[in-house]
């Protein structure tokens, strides 16, 4: 049994290795992109539209409203990043219903990569919004808090990665173990639960990412409020 799909090596050329994580990630990327292209190829701007367009619009509007509610700002700036996080993780988790499929989110490398992206995105959005004064928040309320703020920043990133990885990996492993112990019915229930957990985790990851980004971007607004 493989704990992580990283260990399933499909192709190896020196340090470059093509493992199941990367392969399935590409599959998900291709799937999302192709479906998006197919749907958005013939978009209707009237009230008459295809079911797929309707579905995609509902999805995008849902994500946008969620972002707007959390950030209390214009959502268009954060939509591509946070929306992609949610769609990628959600699809990655939901596809685990397919036999033989290994969710890339069950790999710590993937969750780390996503967490790193969030870790980098937070200051980038903060700087884009507030300029270099963004960094001043690390010295609040006192310069003495700087190390703790940095530790807090790093630790929440690690927590982000570990939470997603732990949940998905455990779900996969529990399903595998149950399959060997009680092969009838019970694994189906766990699988269904796994799907729910996968969706919730995608939501949690995206929401937390948005909260972190919004917290970094809101500094100037607070300042304006103080003035």
């Amino acid at each position: 049994m493989h704990i992580t799909p990283d260990s399933i090596i499909l192709f190896q050329l020196g340090p470059v290795s093509l493992n199941a994580t990367i392969l399935f990630t590409w599959c998900i990327m291709a799937l999302i992109t192709v479906v998006s292209w197919l749907v958005t190829r013939k978009l209707s701007s009237t009230t008459q539209m295809s079911r797929w367009q309707n579905f995609i619009e509902v999805l995008v509007i849902g994500i946008r409203d969620e972002i707007r509610e959390i950030s209390r700002q214009d959502s268009s700036r954060y939509l591509p990043f946070v929306g992609t996080l949610f769609l990628f993780i959600a699809l990655s988790n939901l596809l685990s219903i397919i036999p033989g499929y290994k969710p890339p989110t069950g790999s710590l490398s993937t969750t780390t990569a996503l967490a790193v992206c969030v870790f980098v995105a937070v200051p980038l959005y903060g700087i884009a919004q507030n300029g270099l004064s963004y960094f001043k928040q690390y010295t609040k309320p006192s310069i003495l808090m700087l190390p703790f703020n940095i530790i807090g920043e790093v630790s929440r990133t690690i927590a982000l990665a570990m939470r997603l990885f732990g949940n998905i990996m455990s779900g996969t492993i529990i399903a595998a173990i149950l399959l060997s112990i009680a092969p009838l019915i019970f694994p189906i229930i766990m699988q269904a639960l796994g799907l729910l957990i996968g969706l919730i985790q995608a939501y949690i990851f995206a929401i937390l990412a948005m909260v972190y980004i919004a917290a970094g971007s809101r500094v100037r607004q607070n300042k304006k409020g103080d003035v």
């Binding site: 290795s17 999302i32 591509p80 992609t84 710590l108 996503l114």
Partner: peptide, 18 residues
């Protein structure tokens, strides 16, 4: 558990997907 090559690849993959 962490394959750094995969991490970098996934970061690139994610950015491309974005």
């Amino acid at each position: 558990l962490i394959n750094w090559f995969t991490v970098i690849t996934q970061i690139i993959n994610f950015l491309v997907l974005v």
